Computed example of a mutant assay.
Amino acid sequence: MKKKHEGHVNHERYLVTYSDLITLLLAFFIILYSMSTPDAKKMESLANQLSIQFHPQSESIAPPLNSDKNVSARTRGAAVTEQEQKTMASVSEQNSLREAKEKIEKEVKERGLEKDVKTSLSDSGLKITLTDKVLFETGSAVLNNSNTMGLLDEIGFILSTVENPVSIEGHTDNVPINNPQYPSNWELSAARSLSVLKEMVAFTPVLDPTRFSATGFGEFKPIADNSNSAGRQKNRRVEILVKRQNADGLLKPERGETKK
């Protein structure tokens, strides 16, 4: 009787199991990588491919893209983009006003008016403060200083390079005034702010008048104590405020300034 030969032993069968294991590990790490940088469309495509490979009978295991979570994610993405745009606008505006401030300060220095003209930049905007003694005679709203008038002309020209609204505000001390032309400090302060506005617009006709307003606050917004002459002198002033339109709350008032 012939001796039966034993079947051939396949010593490479372990490679099949090993190959399956490597495939599963590869799929696992691909999923981890995809989850680390989520993208809705990529995740759906990956899920579909894995589903087809491991479950050929199924078409897809990925949830639809129009789920509430995906909509929420897109909404958050849009919000981030909008916030970035606001930040860029705020930074651009801040740089523009800072450049205008530097130009005005240069003009002030060249005219020797540093003691009577101050500038400051805060979240409210760019403020130029002029004392009344370099603008008007006592109780008058007629500009009488050619050097300061020249400065106002230059300020108007510089402000034509920005698009922000401008408010010109007149202020007085608390000493009463009562004459046929100005029955109260309200009228005097309003007339002074209007004189400053007219001077700037007359020199720079390209200034858009819809950007400007003139207001009189009289004695009711003091920045110093009216009980002494030094305080009253500080309170008699005209302020030119270039208002910020994209304030982000990060630009703090300079020393001695308060937000409006």
Rank of each mutant, 00 (worst) to 15 (best):
D123S: 11
L126P: 01
N95K: 12
N95L: 13
V117Y: 06
K115S: 14
K109N: 12
K133A: 09
S124F: 05
E82G: 10
E107G: 02
L121K: 00
G125Q: 05
E107V: 07
S122Y: 02
Q94I: 11
E99Y: 02
E107M: 05
G112I: 14
E84I: 15
K118L: 12
I104Q: 02
A89K: 11
L130V: 10
L97K: 06
T81D: 12
K109D: 10
K86Q: 15
K127G: 01
G112N: 12
S120I: 09
Q85C: 04
L130Y: 03
E99P: 01
L126M: 05
K127N: 06
S90W: 05
E82D: 14
A100D: 04
S120V: 13
E107Q: 11
I104D: 00
T131G: 08
V91I: 14
K127Y: 00
E99H: 08
K118W: 00
E102P: 01
I104L: 06
L126Y: 05
Q85K: 13
K101V: 07
L130A: 06
T129V: 09
K118M: 10
G112D: 13
R111T: 14
D123Q: 08
E107K: 02
E102Y: 00
V108Y: 01
Q83D: 14
V91K: 09
K101N: 06
E102V: 10
E93I: 08
K118P: 02
S124W: 00
R98K: 10
T119E: 00
T131H: 01
V117P: 05
K118G: 03
A100Q: 06
E107L: 08
V80I: 15
T81P: 00
E84W: 05
E110D: 14
E84C: 09
S96N: 08
T81V: 15
E114C: 10
K118S: 10
E110F: 06
V108L: 05
S92L: 09
S122E: 07
S90F: 05
V91W: 03
E110V: 15
T87Y: 02
R98E: 13
Q83R: 12
S120R: 12
T129C: 03
M88A: 13
T129L: 06
V91H: 03
S90L: 08
K109G: 11
S96Y: 01
E102F: 03
R98F: 03
S122C: 08
T119A: 01
S90C: 10
L121R: 03
K103T: 12
Q83A: 13
V80A: 11
T119K: 04
E93P: 00
S120W: 02
K101E: 11
S122T: 15
T119Q: 04
L113Q: 11
S90Y: 01
L130P: 00
K115L: 14
R111H: 07
L97P: 04
R98A: 10
V91P: 00
M88E: 13
E102K: 07
K127W: 06
G112F: 11
I104T: 07
L97N: 05
E105S: 07
A100N: 06
S122K: 07
V80E: 09
T119L: 05
L130N: 02
L121P: 03
L126W: 03
T119F: 00
K86M: 13
I104C: 02
S124E: 09
K127S: 09
K133D: 15
E102R: 07
S120K: 07
S96R: 08
K133S: 15
L121G: 00
G125W: 04
S120F: 02
K103L: 11
T87L: 11
K101S: 07
